[in-house]
Amino acid sequence: MQMIKTIDVPREFIFEKIIESGLYDIEKQTGKRPKVMNLKGFSYVKTFRKNQKGTIKFDEVAGPSVYAFTTSTQRNTFHTRWEFHKIDDRTTDVVITEEQLSNGFFQKLNDLLVNFVLGRFKKRQIIAMIDTIQKAYHG
């Protein structure tokens, strides 16, 4: 999946909001709050719904242009990358890519079906999150 959205927000602002969300999640799960400069290579275990667990590892954090992480569970591995491309001082292209690798034939089949059905919903959630950040910037 790849999404591109142009927003009327400086890339530094949106990068800070995305990083803050990640740091909040780390603190909620571990009780620790690492510094942004120490995020690359940092990993932690996250509990999802229904007691499912996964490991989140930060692959690249290069402010204010890249925020990339990998989420690994027993069933899947997700590679997620956010890129923030400066258009001008107030406008940013947000490029989000996510690659899903499934473990096993039946899991791949299941994921294809689920992604077909829920893919639009997931994209809407991401767009809503970006729109919320844009509204926060504009007051």
Rank of each mutant, 00 (worst) to 15 (best):
K108Y: 07
V61H: 02
Q125E: 13
K28Y: 04
T132S: 13
Q107R: 11
L101Q: 13
N38L: 03
V94A: 06
Q29G: 02
Q52M: 10
Q100H: 15
G63N: 11
Q134R: 10
I87C: 05
N38A: 04
S102M: 01
T77P: 02
F15A: 09
G41H: 03
F42D: 07
E98L: 05
N51V: 02
I19C: 01
S21D: 12
Q52A: 07
F78Y: 13
T92C: 10
Q107A: 09
L109F: 08
K17V: 00
K17H: 10
Q74F: 13
K123C: 05
P64R: 12
Q2W: 06
T73L: 04
N103E: 10
R75D: 10
L23M: 03
K53G: 00
E27N: 10
G104I: 02
N76W: 08
Q107H: 08
R11G: 03
I18S: 02
I26P: 03
E27H: 08
F48N: 01
A68I: 02
F105C: 07
K135V: 01
A68Q: 11
T47L: 04
M1Q: 13
D25S: 14
Q100E: 12
F15D: 02
F84I: 02
Q100Y: 08
G54E: 01
E99D: 15
Q52F: 08
V114K: 10
I26G: 07
N110A: 14
E60K: 15
L113M: 13
K57L: 06
F58Q: 09
Q107L: 01
L113A: 12
G41D: 00
H85A: 11
K50A: 04
I19K: 01
N51D: 11
R120L: 09
F13E: 05
K35H: 06
V117H: 02
